[in-house]
């Protein structure tokens, strides 16, 4: 954990956003929590990072974070990916906040595309960066149409799409951003997490907040909420599995990234959750390629 000193001079407000903007976002968060899975519009601001690079997540974090928080930021499950490093550095600077890579130590975890492998706890808030909050957008381009579908719970289009997938492939060929139903009322995009992570959305002890900056929407899954990944009785929801184990830590039940080792087809599979993998290795677990140089990369101070 790295504590950052107070900056003597601030050209921007604490946590970057002005207080009025924080209040606007905070009000949207409360409504989003009160209506789980509903996309609440908010007056998303231009941020000092580009739209599409986490502006929704950054605004949510900026609206809730305080100096007592411990902040972790991951992208693709890893703490050391460039954009995660960049966002973590931003909050260390503008919010005087301690940062960590340890999932269990963080009070706020901002994420893009993954839910950490380690189970979250009641004191934690998981903030998702969301590129496209509308689960139906791929099926219907118009916001005026999709908003009406949510209003009147008309989700036939989504089921038809899944059914067509079954008809074409024999199974539901959806891999990330797999549609979920929240408390049997709102269809919700879980953000582009792999469907491997979908089961972690439901009955999670932590607060799950979703921010889409460019699309100007906030939504939430409160703790211990029912989240169902859509499926059919004869084609039940299933998650990704691997024949391989993590090459570094030997984990058999984590989401794996495929790393290409040369241009003749050699590859290794490693945990996408870098902290999960590091903790396992520290505890003595070893995979078939333990000691590979990739393991050293996450030791770099960040």
């Amino acid at each position: 954990m790295t504590a950052r000193p107070n900056e003597p001079e601030r050209y921007y407000n604490y946590a970057y956003l002005d207080e009025q903007t924080k209040r606007m976002i905070r009000r949207a968060i409360l409504k989003a929590l009160a209506i789980p899975g509903y996309q609440a519009p908010f007056g998303s601001r231009e941020m000092p990072v580009p739209y599409g690079w986490g502006t929704g997540g950054i605004q949510l974090t900026a609206a809730i974070i305080g100096p007592d928080d411990v902040y972790k930021c991951i992208d693709q499950g890893a703490d050391d990916t460039t954009n995660a490093v960049s966002i973590r550095r931003f909050f260390a600077q503008v919010a005087d906040v301690a940062t960590t890579e340890e999932t269990g130590e963080a009070t706020i975890i901002q994420t893009r595309h993954r839910i950490p492998e380690k189970g979250l706890t009641e004191g934690q808030v998981l903030v998702f960066q969301v590129p496209q909050p509308e689960p139906l957008r791929g099926l219907e381009a118009r916001e005026t149409e999709t908003r009406a579908m949510h209003a009147y719970e008309e989700y036939g289009l989504q089921y038809v799409s899944l059914y067509e997938s079954v008809a074409a492939h024999g199974y539901i060929a959806s891999t990330v951003g797999y549609p979920t139903m929240i408390e049997e009322r709102y269809l919700m995009s879980p953000s582009p997490i792999p469907k491997f992570d979908n089961p972690k959305l439901g009955q999670n002890p932590a607060i799950l907040l979703f921010g889409a900056g460019r699309e100007k929407r906030i939504y939430a899954v409160p703790p211990y909420t029912n989240v169902r990944s859509l499926d059919f009785e004869d084609h039940p929801f299933e998650t990704q599995t691997w024949e391989e184990d993590c090459a570094l830590c030997g984990a058999q039940e984590s989401y794996l990234d495929e790393v290409v080792l040369d241009d003749s087809g050699e590859r290794m599979f490693v945990c996408s959750d870098s902290n999960f993998c590091a903790e396992r290795r520290a505890a003595g677990h070893a995979g078939p390629m333990a000691g590979h140089q990739l393991a050293a990369l996450d030791k770099e101070p960040a």
Partner: peptide, 19 residues
């Protein structure tokens, strides 16, 4: 300190609305 004060209150209220 309005920044710190309102942040601390909001976190409690958010926890209440979430739980």
């Amino acid at each position: 300190d309005p920044t710190r004060g309102s942040q601390a209150v909001f976190r409690k209220v958010m926890e209440c609305m979430a739980r």
